[in-house]
Amino acid sequence: VNWGEGDDAGRWVEVAPVGSTARLALNPPMGSAPGGGSIGIEVADLAAEKARLQAAGLDVANEMPAGGPVPAMFSINDPDGNWIWVVQAG
């Protein structure tokens, strides 16, 4: 995935309160188009969370296997079209 333009392509920043496991990741819009915000949550068992969300009637999309420094993840969309990324905790 290529985020941003030029030297900033593919870059993001993560911020968190000291001692917290909750983080906020900030990145340029995908494809240089505005909108389509996203948030990510980490789970201990990605497969179990996927099954739970599907059983609740949510559509799972954008499944991505782990590769290099990037963990396995998938997304679901909220009613406004924002992405919620569910990420395997490391």
Rank of each mutant, 00 (worst) to 15 (best):
G67Q: 06
V70Y: 11
A33N: 06
V18T: 10
V15I: 11
V70C: 10
W3A: 08
A72C: 09
I84Y: 03
L24S: 00
K50P: 07
S38K: 13
A16R: 05
A61P: 05
W12N: 10
V43L: 12
G68A: 07
L46H: 11
G81Q: 09
W83Q: 13
P65W: 11
V15G: 01
W12T: 07
A48P: 08
F74D: 02
I76Q: 09
A51L: 00
N2Q: 11
D45S: 13
G57S: 07
L24M: 00
A56P: 09
L53R: 04
G81L: 07
S32R: 15
N82Q: 05
G4A: 10
G4R: 13
G81D: 04
P34L: 08
A66F: 02
S20V: 02
M73E: 06
Q88T: 14
V86A: 08
G40V: 01
V15R: 04
E49L: 09
W85C: 05
S38V: 11
G10I: 02
E42D: 13
D7W: 09
D45C: 14
P79G: 01
F74Y: 09
I39Y: 06
L24G: 00
L53F: 02
A72L: 08
N27K: 11
G37E: 10
D80K: 06
L58Q: 08
G40R: 03
P28H: 07
G35N: 03
G40N: 03
D7R: 15
G57D: 02
W85T: 12
P69D: 13
G31C: 07
A22F: 00
F74W: 08
A22I: 00
K50H: 10
P28E: 05
P69R: 15
R11H: 05
N27V: 02
S38G: 14
R11D: 03
P17C: 07
A56Q: 15
G68P: 09
A61T: 14
V1G: 12
E14A: 05
P28L: 10
G10C: 07
L26V: 11
Q88S: 14
V13Y: 07
V18G: 08
G67P: 01
I39E: 03
G31N: 09
V18Y: 04
P65M: 11
A47W: 09
P79T: 01
D78N: 05
P34D: 03
K50G: 04
E14S: 04
A55T: 10
M30C: 09
S20A: 04
E63T: 15
P69L: 14
M73N: 13
G36M: 09
W12P: 01
N82D: 05
A25N: 01
I41Y: 15
A56T: 11
I84A: 06
D45R: 15
S20D: 03
D78H: 06
N62V: 04
N27P: 00
A51F: 01
M30L: 15
A89F: 10
R23V: 00
R52S: 05
A47N: 12
A33Y: 01
M64V: 15
V43P: 10
P79A: 03
G6R: 12
V87T: 10
D59W: 02
Q54F: 03
A55I: 02
